[in-house]
Amino acid sequence: MQQHAPQSVESPADPVLRLNGITKTFPGVKALNAVSLELYAGEVTALIGENGAGKSTIVKVLTGIYRADSGTINVGGTQVNFTSAEDATAAGITAIHQETVLFDELSVAENIFIGHAPRGRFGLIDTAAMNTRAQEILDRIDAPLSATTPLKDLGIANKHLVAIARALSVDARVVIMDEPTAALSQKEIEELYELVNRLKAEGRAILFISHKFDEVFRIADRYAVFRDGEKVGAGLMADVNEGDLVQLMIGRAVDQIFPVREPNTGEEVLRIAGYAHPTEFDDISLTLHAGEILGFYGLVGAGRPS
């Protein structure tokens, strides 16, 4: 006889985190308008929306960086009130920010433990214990890094691993991932998915912010779609297809997103051939015509802005 009903996606337990009626206004802009959101243990909830839909504002409210004008946040059934990022961490909410939220002049271990470093005698930072624990976390996520390396010696992908290790250095019930794949290569993205699955198995609730539909369909159990600071839809991933999500996200039918273009390009105004730079790029050739928009596509670090 089973004592407990198996917890499935269809019949979830009480949410680990519940936002209710969160409103946040900036001068002239209502960034969030009475938004509600629920996250469940062992599930990935994808937060989807266009730029400016309020995704990053909700992350900042959840991590204690912004204070909501009104509304409540419940963690594990208790109402919480965050006045700083420390409060959010203490309540068991951690975020994997993009790799820009790190400190070049500190070591990998210091980056992981900044704000909650282990203390030894006289309240001084116990560097040895900090390095050991940091190395344990790095090994757990298979990061090929030494805890004592200065962060400035690492590349972007490895910095991202440090950001992940930092989020895991606190025993968090809620893990927020803010566009975690934006700067990663395909192989690193696969490793990240593995990590997400491991966190799920450990019973953590994950909020996965993304605007890539393929990854949302691959790893998320639930979705919540934001548009112009409001939640316009939420539910189980199993119940929707990509078209439904796009429609919710932009508020129009899919066939309207890419209206048929009639190219009306004029004469060539710019031609680059075999253009090279000693360190940044090599043998670039492209042409630009009048009345044409040229898209540059590539990973961060592929030389786009140069």
């Binding site: 990022a85 939220v101 790190l102 500190l106």
Partner: peptide, 14 residues
């Protein structure tokens, strides 16, 4: 070091 190196990030670190 954190505040001087990256003030925005320092806020995220509490």
């Amino acid at each position: 070091y954190a505040v001087g190196g990256n003030p925005d990030a320092a806020v995220y670190a509490g």
